[in-house]
Simulated scan of single mutants.
Amino acid sequence: MGRKPVSEEEHAAKKAKIKAARDRMMAEKIGEKGLIIVHTGPGKGKSSSGFGMILRCIAHGMPCAVVQFIKGAWDTGERRLLTEHFGDLCQFHAMGEGFTWETQNRARDIAAAEAGWEKAKELIRDPSIRMVLLDEINIALRYEYLDIEAVIAFLREEKPEMTHVVLTGRNAAEGLIEAADLVTEMTLVKHPFRAGIKAQAGVEY
């Protein structure tokens, strides 16, 4: 048995009620603050989402910066776009030397992560920079290339009030999730890699 058709008047009344409730809710949201944002989980899209936010900042004329902790050796589309076309608004620092299984040198990985974190702190401390993306920092934290407690303490104590910091990478630490204002977990449902499809330009990088 099919559903009873809804008249235009009923539809309009229902939507008006929803809009009124939404408007009341939005009227109560008047605060602004710099957010600690975490993109984590096994699914694809963590870095892509972070770079989407960086592009929004650029569109609004807001100075921003990127520090890449792992994919520094990759010639990515994001890196090309930002450095070649938006270098006046977005600083880009590729600090990593590749994934940990590529370098096979823990001391070198730690040194690269520490250099990345020092650059990140410098950028975050600059109140003129409105957003800093710490791409794949969660991987560096997971492998203990950086001290998670020191990172959390810095974000809580030294981040300027209106600066947004985005941290990406799977396996985000519980302490970081607790300290964050906004956390999104990407869920893996299906990925072409499992069917023998390699990483492709425009999709993965």
Rank of each mutant, 00 (worst) to 15 (best):
A73Y: 02
K46G: 11
K29W: 08
P63C: 05
W74S: 09
A21V: 13
S47H: 04
T76W: 04
K71P: 01
G34K: 08
G52M: 07
P63S: 05
G77E: 05
M53G: 04
R79Q: 14
L55Y: 09
R24C: 12
I37Y: 00
G52Y: 06
R79W: 09
I70G: 02
L55K: 09
S48P: 11
D23W: 00
P63N: 03
G72Q: 00
D23R: 00
G52W: 04
G34Y: 07
G45V: 02
V38W: 00
V67C: 03
W74D: 10
I58Y: 03
W74Y: 11
V38L: 04
R79D: 14
K33W: 02
G77P: 14
I36R: 01
L55A: 11
W74M: 08
L35G: 10
G61W: 08
G43T: 12
A27F: 08
R56A: 02
K44T: 13
K33G: 08
G52L: 05
K71S: 01
A21C: 11
E78R: 02
S49K: 10
G50H: 00
K33L: 10
P63D: 04
K29V: 13
I70E: 01
A20Y: 12
A73V: 14
H60Y: 04
K29P: 03
D23V: 00
I58C: 02
D75A: 15
G41K: 13
T40K: 10
F69L: 06
M53Y: 00
K71W: 03
H60N: 09
A73P: 11
H60A: 09
M26F: 08
I30L: 15
A65E: 02
E28Q: 15
A21L: 15
I70V: 10
A20N: 10
A21I: 13
D75K: 15
Q68G: 06
T40H: 12
I58S: 02
I58P: 00
I30P: 08
V67E: 07
F51M: 10
K29F: 09
M25R: 11
G50Q: 09
L55V: 08
C57T: 07
G52A: 06
V38E: 03
G43S: 13
A73W: 12
V66I: 01
I36N: 05
A65V: 06
G52F: 06
K29T: 07
V66H: 01
G61S: 05
T76M: 01
K46L: 15
A27M: 08
G72M: 02
K71V: 05
C57M: 05
E32Q: 15
H60Q: 10
T76Q: 04
G34Q: 04
E28L: 15
G72R: 04
G72C: 04
V38N: 05
A65C: 07
